[in-house]
Nucleic acid binder design. Structure first.
Lengths: 84, 84
DNA sequence: AATTTATTTAGACATTTGCCTAAACATTGA
DNA sequence: TCAATGTTTAGGCAAATGTCTAAATAAATT
């Protein structure tokens, strides 16, 4: 829960998640869309992975990142207690 | 959106929200439940108010804090785009 | 009016965060 | 095998964060 909110508490990381809605992408492809260095994006991806919001798989020299939507259920569950 | 995720990215603040589910409470009553100083809790309440997650009204020398659940809809809306 | 009680503001301090560059690692291709 | 490409790791730095104590503000009580 902590890692989840931490990961979401950054506009760049949220933008990465929105980018991944369109489908999996390599670290490099993601980095190109943002005006930050590759190491910075790599670090953001690491935090997203720690929160289990994305998964990664190595494909040759590329690393493909994929959105993991199952974690959102946990967040929805937390929110649900505040409903009504 | 930024203020919202920022406010939620702290276990003490989330616990305060959960406390307020039971009903409005004064700053002092809230502070008593946590082993932090009153100024620290006051600061947390300020961040929650900035995110519009709580509202406050002065009642005599007390300040009553109330959960504002309407903001959760904004969060649900953001989450919704990731569904399915 | 002076004192007590409730809360916030101000300022200090250690830790965390987000960024960078340089270097390391891993894979592909010449 | 050497060079090029993609990605991560390491280390440094400024800014933000969470905590504290001391002081200020505001309302109630004596």
């Amino acid at each position: 829960m902590n890692a989840l909110f931490k990961a979401l508490n950054d506009p760049t990381r949220r933008a990465i998640l929105e980018r991944l809605r369109a489908g999996p992408a390599t670290a490099g492809a993601i980095a190109e869309q943002f005006s930050f260095s590759a190491p910075t994006i790599s670090h953001h991806l690491d935090l997203l992975r720690q929160a289990d919001l994305v998964t990664s798989q190595k494909q040759g020299q590329f690393v493909l990142y994929t959105l993991n939507m199952t974690v959102f259920d946990e967040l929805l569950g937390w929110l649900y207690q505040f409903k009504s």
